[in-house]
């Protein structure tokens, strides 16, 4: 009997500790930031958000994230397809390399882009001759975002392609469908959920990205200042209320995306 009591006390203690940790680490801070930004009511929140520098930075972030996501959807779909469907030398190596941006510190990623495309580099110099400015301008931000979110679409598409029964494709051929028709009507629809959820994850990551971008963006207010860098600036200049207000805007957007991803995934599993 003693042993049972002891084990019950133990498990009760464990449960409480784990749940407390969970709530304190994850739930409380998120609630905290929402309450902080509305602490003084709607007006200060609205003032912070309607500061032109603030909303411009948010809009810029969304616009560039969309561009980066579109690029990644195209690249990711292609690479996912090539890595699953074709056999060629170096395939396994490339497949392992996909995860590199996840393993590499984002600040290092930013530094790499800076080195590669900076004003003193070969590529940067070449672009300058043609009048294209990369680093400290929008293209660099997009490149940083593409780099950081590179694995998402690929990793989301691959399992779907692997699952896809070859016989479905063959059935389509035996029914007289052409190659392109088969691709767009049979293969593509089954890749779509992966592309969508990968794209949404990439988008929310691009919205949130800081490390890679801050090094290459130049951070000119109103021009190349993205939201997370703006928030950082507000914290540095001791305006946590303003930082919290923009954070809430960005967070809400990210939560909606996360929720949408969950929806897509549960619908897929439900099928």
């Amino acid at each position: 009997m003693n042993a049972i009591f002891r084990s019950r006390w133990w498990s009760f203690g464990f449960r409480t500790t784990i749940m407390l940790y969970f709530v304190l680490l994850i739930v409380l801070p998120i609630i905290g930031i929402y309450t902080q930004s509305f602490e003084l009511g709607w007006q200060p929140f609205w003032d912070s958000v309607s500061d032109p520098l603030a909303w411009r930075s948010v809009l810029l972030t969304i616009r560039l994230s969309v561009i980066a996501t579109v690029i990644n959807v195209l690249l990711g779909t292609m690479i996912g397809w090539v890595l699953i469907r074709y056999r060629f030398p170096g395939r396994r190596l490339l497949n392992s390399l996909v995860d590199l941006p996840f393993a590499l510190p984002t600040a290092v990623g930013g530094l790499m882009i800076l080195l590669l495309l900076g004003p003193n580099s070969f590529a940067g110099g070449l672009a300058e001759k043609f009048g294209i400015e990369i680093v400290f301008h929008e293209p660099a931000i997009v490149i940083a975002m593409v780099f950081v979110t590179f694995p998402f679409v690929i990793r989301a598409v691959q399992p779907l392609l692997e699952e896809l029964d070859k016989s479905e494709e063959e059935a389509s051929y035996t029914l007289g469908a052409s190659k392109s028709r088969t691709f767009f009507h049979v293969i593509f629809p089954s890749m779509l959920p992966g592309i969508l959820s990968g794209a949404m994850l990439a988008f929310s990551r691009a919205l949130a990205e800081f490390g890679a971008v801050v090094l290459v963006a130049g951070n000119i207010p109103g021009k190349t200042l993205i939201a997370s860098v703006y928030i950082f600036g507000e914290i540095e200049s001791d305006n946590p209320q303003g930082a919290a207000a923009v954070s809430v805007l960005l967070l809400t957007l990210s939560f909606i995306i996360l929720w949408a991803v969950n929806l897509v995934q549960t619908r897929r599993l439900g099928k």
Binding site: F22, I26, V27, L28, P29, I30, G32, I33, Q36, L201, S204, R205, L207, A208, E209, F210, G211, A227, S228, V229, I231, F232, I235, P240, A243, A244, S247, L250, L251, S254, F255, I257, L258, W259, N262
Partner: peptide, 26 residues
């Protein structure tokens, strides 16, 4: 509910994550 809360840090920008801690424990 808890299961979906687990993913929240994925959606939170690291800068905002840091800000939360500064706000709570600063």
């Amino acid at each position: 509910l808890l299961n979906s809360v687990v993913d929240l840090p994925f959606a939170v920008s690291p800068v905002i994550g840091g800000l939360m801690i500064v706000l709570m424990l600063g």
